[in-house]
């Protein structure tokens, strides 16, 4: 019974890989949010800058120039700090995206290689050989079983179909 569902196992693996690939940006942004510790500080700084700007708008530059200049300098300083923080966060996000992508592609490659090794000699499914003539050898590669559907052919077909379905859904 289990041998009859080889095609389904390969199909579900390919579907899972493509699905995860679609959600890679979301996963990387979620992970970068988890690992980013200065998010609260950044929010605090943003609020503080907003408050100071509001306060600055209430001060008359003519009457209280010294106070106005002091506050403006403070705002500028804090804005610079915020810029540095945002820059570091962006760099961290890019790094996280890169790591997630690399990890995913390594896992995908490992999965595909293990599937190919597992079904190298066995076809994922078998149909009468005259049905798929004259391409039966190509379809059966690398198993070499007459009328069999080889793992490589099935992987290619599944990848294409799953990509089409996901494109239509998204």
């Amino acid at each position: 019974m289990a041998a009859g569902f080889n095609w389904f196992l390969v199909l579900s693996s390919v579907f899972l890989c493509n699905l995860v690939k679609t959600f890679l940006p979301s996963i990387s942004s979620f992970l970068s949010k988890i690992f980013h510790k200065d998010a609260d500080q950044e929010m605090e700084m943003r609020t503080e800058i907003q408050n100071m700007k509001m306060e600055l708008s209430t001060i008359s530059m003519m009457d209280e120039f010294a106070r106005y200049a002091r506050l403006e300098r403070k705002i500028n300083k804090m804005t610079d700090q915020l810029k540095t923080l945002v820059k570091s966060r962006t760099a961290q996000q890019a790094k996280m995206k890169w790591i997630v992508n690399i990890a995913f592609y390594i896992l995908q490659a490992a999965l595909m290689i293990s599937l190919i090794l597992k079904y190298y000699a066995d076809p994922v499914t078998v149909v009468p050989s005259k049905w798929i003539a004259p391409l039966e050898r190509l379809v059966a590669f690398p198993s070499g079983v007459a009328g069999g559907v080889g793992i490589t052919c099935w992987l290619v077909v599944c990848n294409k179909v799953v990509a089409l379905i996901l494109q239509a859904v998204s």
Binding site: G4, W7, T125, V149, W154, V157, K160, V161, L164
Partner: peptide
């Protein structure tokens, strides 16, 4: 793409 969809549907319906 058509060939892939055709072959996939054929194998699925067969199974």
């Amino acid at each position: 793409s058509d060939l892939c969809v055709y072959f996939f549907s054929f194998i699925m319906s067969h199974e």
